[in-house]
Design a protein around this nucleic acid. Structure first.
Lengths: 127, 127
DNA sequence: ACCTCAAATCTAATATTTTCGATATGTTAA
DNA sequence: TTAACATATCGAAAATATTAGATTTGAGGT
């Protein structure tokens, strides 16, 4: 079942992708592991801001960090990227009505099985 | 070439996906077209808030709207969903170094061709 | 031990997003 | 044409996210 929390968690993955600086960082990592200082040079942001963005990317699972001495190396996590793609696939997959899931949405559990506002209207007073 | 604007535009698609209410709306549309009033009943938000979310979803291309009389029917746009998936695929695809794209990132054009901070260090004073 | 450097954390300012209530627009029904 | 209804838009409040500067932490190097 999909709870509100599930949606929050899923939204978190996409949140990682909805800032243009973070998209640029991901682009940079496509060609391989990079250390923070390299990434920093390409972006017009401060060091603490970069650190904040990297934290969000790592928490989303899309990026992995590998500390080495003073440096921190970042790379795309294939598992995380796959997970994000699967999530988007699931989300955009069209289901036929027979496969209808139950949502944790109260009344809607009933209402969504109706085909239109007109039908819903006929129900008025019945529940 | 990827400009800053390109990243802004791409981020917009993901922005549509990073709110839990919008994810719930998308889930509802998986089983087919729904009118705004139906969607509204399942969510604990006001009517104007729903309208705002639907606008964001439509502008991202993921959802399509079909007005019919007083009602507005929403559905998943297969084109928009495909575009979002392609975008995510592109973003998470690992490239080998030969295919390196040029980014609109100033100095980084040079720097990203180096393999580590150590190498970069050797360059100091040379540019 | 001390100094330097890279990165993370803390704090506060600013910008953006979400939300709601009120109002406007546009459609249908009486 | 008015009334009732569905949705969109406007304006403001509240919640979140982004950012930078200052400070802290932790790893080397001297």
């Amino acid at each position: 079942m999909n709870t509100r929390n599930q949606y929050e968690r899923n939204a978190k993955v996409f949140k990682a992708l909805c800032d243009s600086n973070r998209l640029m960082i991901i682009k940079m990592l496509q060609t391989g592991e990079r250390c923070a200082c390299e990434i920093l040079e390409g972006l017009h942001i401060g060091q603490s801001t970069l650190s904040h963005h990297m934290k969000i990317l790592i928490e989303s699972g899309i990026v992995a960090g590998r500390p080495e001495g003073k440096w921190m190396y970042y790379s795309l996590s294939q598992e995380g990227c796959e997970a994000a793609k699967n999530l988007l696939d699931d989300l955009t997959r069209v289901k036929d009505n027979g496969n209808r899931e139950e949502w944790d949405l109260g009344d809607l559990k009933v209402r969504v099985t109706m085909s239109s506002c007109e039908d819903a209207r006929k129900m008025e007073g019945k529940n």
